[in-house]
Amino acid sequence: MLINYLKYCYRQAVISLSRNRWLALVSASMIAVSLAILGGFLLAAVNANQAMQNIQSNLEIVVFLEEGAEISTLERKIEQLEGIVHCTFVDKHTGLQEFGRSLGDEALLAELAGEHNPLPDIFRVRAREGELVPLLAGQIEQFPGVEAVDYGRELVQTITGISRWLYWISVCISALLAVGAIFLVGTTIRLSVVIRQEEIGIMKYLGASDWFIRLPFLLEGLTIGWTGTLAAVVALGLAYYQFAALLLEKSPLFFLQPVTSPGMLAAIFGGLLLLGTAMGGLGSVFSIRRFLRV
């Protein structure tokens, strides 16, 4: 009985979709566009997040020491902190030599050597994870004998800010597009309901259950949603594949590496497919509820 019923629902959904094929196509396209934009932003956000992780994990905390600071005590305290990979002491003379080498100015180096060296002793500290850097820097800054710490705070803050904006922009645009898509699917289903109103009335007389009447419309909405999203996922997948291949081959910066984790990409694309299909179903549920009252 259930199989016969499902066959009937499927047949009705196919007939209805072919009758309203243009409107169904517009609705599916709208879902495809909104989901492609949402997916694009999601991929951008995930990649930006990975770039930030790459940058942060390469960040070094430079700890500037006060004159006469207890070097060995401080070194022990830093190394005891959770998440520290290694901690290297660089005295002011070595520091000056490094600085001179980076400048390539031997004369300046000679002039600043000895008692005129303005540089402080420092520790170079590496964290296990990029995310720990700001926290560890804050803790080290509190230790006695530490004058200041630096870890590229501004760069991290800029990237975090960009990621956050990217996320909110994508949420807003996608929400607007999703509402539009749900509305369009609703219109398509409403049209089907109006076209089939006489049939629905007769079915009620014949003793059709509410779900018998509703399910073909729900199936129609889900099909529209699924088709639109599938188109979006395929297009987005192909575009991302090209982009990732290009970036892997010719990335200009060390931290610009694309996300290629199969688990992460499957979650994004699978999630989009579920979301788009659900949007189609949601549009039809609203329409049927408002217009059938069966």
Binding site: M1, M203, G207
Partner: peptide, 10 residues
């Protein structure tokens, strides 16, 4: 249709 709405077999 009268039979389909009650789920009778084809």
């Amino acid at each position: 249709l009268a039979l389909e709405v009650t789920g009778r077999p084809p």
